[in-house]
Design a protein around this nucleic acid. Structure first.
Length: 296
DNA sequence: GCCCAGGTGTCTG
DNA sequence: CAGACACATGGG
């Protein structure tokens, strides 16, 4: 019998709303959704741990599918899941602080939606690079090829699950190794350079997490070739417990605002900056709710 | 065939 | 320092 643990959820939490976002692309290779349950392979204490996460209307349930694990690993798995669903954020503060015509309607509509985090910095940065300036569907295709070629996999019950490649598996690749996966020359350079930053200790995830300082992390990340302001902000909102990061150049945000405001064309950066003044401290959640509106 | 896509680095005036 | 431009390929 598989072991199971339950996790309390915060007051403002909608599993269904989160799952709309989590399940938005069938090409996603880092997790699988089936019957409203989320299957995800993670690595804890260097062991692959396959989780099945569900919701019973009251608590999250986490089932360990691929074996028995000690108390330490179970504790880490719980922390991992809590972080992934961003349970650390007090959403009521967000809801209470927003009172403008653009965002307010979305708060009611998507009540309980929480940012779905990418728990690992290298993965978040790679994903931001892969997603630069190409359509999202192709970005997922590229990520899938990358993960299935260089990541560690686990086959369970006839299905494959994947861990994201580690920097040391990427740092010594040739550009052409990624070109054959249809990465552009530029993306291939960025990804390999990024891996080198981790291997060489130029980027230390632990150090950035300890600082937990937006300005400091932006400076560190944008110093990496291929990581501009958009990628840094995207990465921070998806990977750190910081809610003020706002990828203002994001075309998804532009299109969401265009739809909501019924504009003929996408709003300018200056216009978005003006709106964002009302979202101070909660820009990441503003961005996330705007993205969610694209999937209605 | 054309425009756009979850941008970034580099060059130019 | 703002603005133009190359990059490079799939999707609609």
């Amino acid at each position: 019998m598989n072991e199971k643990v339950s996790i309390n959820v915060p007051k403002e939490f909608s599993y269904d709303e989160c799952m709309v976002y989590i399940n938005r692309c069938q090409l996603e290779c880092m997790h699988r959704v089936s019957n409203g349950e989320l299957y995800k392979l993670i690595s804890l204490d260097n062991q692959p741990v396959l989780l099945k996460i569900g919701f019973d209307g009251n608590k999250l349930s986490v089932i360990f599918l691929n074996g028995h694990f000690n108390k330490g690993i179970k504790g880490k798995a719980i922390k991992y899941v809590q972080y992934m669903f961003d349970f650390g954020t007090n959403l009521s503060e967000f809801y209470e602080s927003i009172d403008d015509e653009v965002l307010k309607p979305l708060l009611d509509k998507y009540y309980g939606l929480r940012i779905f985090k990418i728990n690992h910095l290298f993965e978040a940065l790679c994903w931001s690079v892969i997603g630069q300036q190409i359509n999202l569907k192709f970005a997922y295709t590229l990520k899938k090829r990358f993960v299935e070629k260089y990541g560690e996999g686990l086959n369970f019950d006839g299905k494959d699950y994947w861990l994201f490649p580690k920097p040391d598996a990427i740092a010594d690749l040739d550009i052409d190794d990624l070109r054959v996966l249809q990465f552009t020359q530029r993306k291939a350079e960025y990804i390999i350079g990024l891996a080198k930053c981790f291997v060489d200790g130029i980027i230390k995830e632990e150090e950035l997490r300890e600082s937990n300082n937006y300005g400091y992390i932006v400076d560190k990340l944008t110093a990496i070739r291929g990581i501009g302001k958009w990628s840094a902000d995207y990465t921070i909102m998806k990977c750190f417990p910081i809610n003020c990061a706002f990828p203002i150049a994001d075309v998804g945000i532009h299109n969401a605002l265009k739809n909501i405001l019924k504009l003929d064309k996408k709003p300018s950066i200056a216009e978005i900056e003006a709106m964002a003044k009302q979202w101070k401290g909660w820009e990441s959640y503003a961005a996330f709710y705007l993205w969610r509106s694209l999937y209605d």
